[in-house]
Design a protein around this nucleic acid. Structure first.
Lengths: 132, 132
DNA sequence: ACTTATAAGTGTAATTTACACCTATGTGCA
DNA sequence: TGCACATAGGTGTAAATTACACTTATAAGT
């Protein structure tokens, strides 16, 4: 059994469901996954942490892995999702609705007039990444 | 200056923007805020942590506080949002778009057919808390 | 006086994350 | 050959965050 269920309120580690989601489609190794996540929208994944997450997922039996020494270069540890992993993914996606409700509430209160269901009239435009 | 800006990737403490959002409308004390958050959709706020967050917000000058000893019962520490707090709130709400994009990507990949604009056919139903 | 509800706060262990570093393989090249 | 470099996986550990339990204090009801 997995020792940690997706406890809502705030998604502590969104990397986990994203990793599982990618593994649902294709088996992949860590380095490969990190690249995919970057194109997916995750900015700067910490490599050290990432590998540790993968090992933890394997401990929790949400994924399995085996070495691939066929190709050139360093050996790759190929990960595959398990049935349990698929269940976890569904569970997460389902219970995530709670969090989404919270966010909907937030934006309703934040700006009751410009509700983000019509992103046409976003006053922030594209230049909103002005974080110092 | 605030020592911590809303660093995207994953909202570590969604309580902060929610607190500020409520304080934008009305000045309130901690206990009161906690009740509001519960109705808002936040499940089980840890009291200890909550008060500590408020003090931290004050240190960061996103809010100010003063004692109210007028009314009966224990003295209340009334919080009010500052200009900096308002700025922070806007900054958070703006940069949160990145995270939302991530979530949109997730659900696009999770189920390309049933996009979560129609949550009618959720197969997980309500009875999904069958964890250990 | 004692109990309960409200209000704010502290102590601290566990968890999570960030940052830096380490091992190892293969390729290119000088 | 020997060195730098890119890939691939991994560890150590301090900082940050969170969860859980506990404490102080005021007022109301009995």
């Amino acid at each position: 059994m997995n020792s940690k269920k997706p406890q809502m309120g705030a998604p502590k580690n969104i990397l986990v469901p994203i990793i599982l989601l990618h593994l649902r489609d294709i088996n992949a190794y860590g380095y490969e996954l990190m690249e995919k996540l970057t194109t997916f929208g995750v900015d700067s994944v910490d490599r050290g942490n990432f590998y540790r997450i993968l090992r933890q997922l394997e401990k929790d039996e949400l994924v399995t892995s085996e070495w691939n020494t066929e190709e050139n270069g360093p050996a790759k540890r190929i990960y595959a999702i398990t049935e349990e992993g698929l269940s976890y993914l569904d569970l997460w996606a389902g219970s995530f609705g709670e969090y989404q409700k919270l966010l909907t509430n937030f934006f309703k209160l934040y700006n009751p007039f410009l509700f983000p269901s019509t992103p046409a009239s976003k006053k922030t435009d594209e230049a909103d990444d002005t974080n110092d």
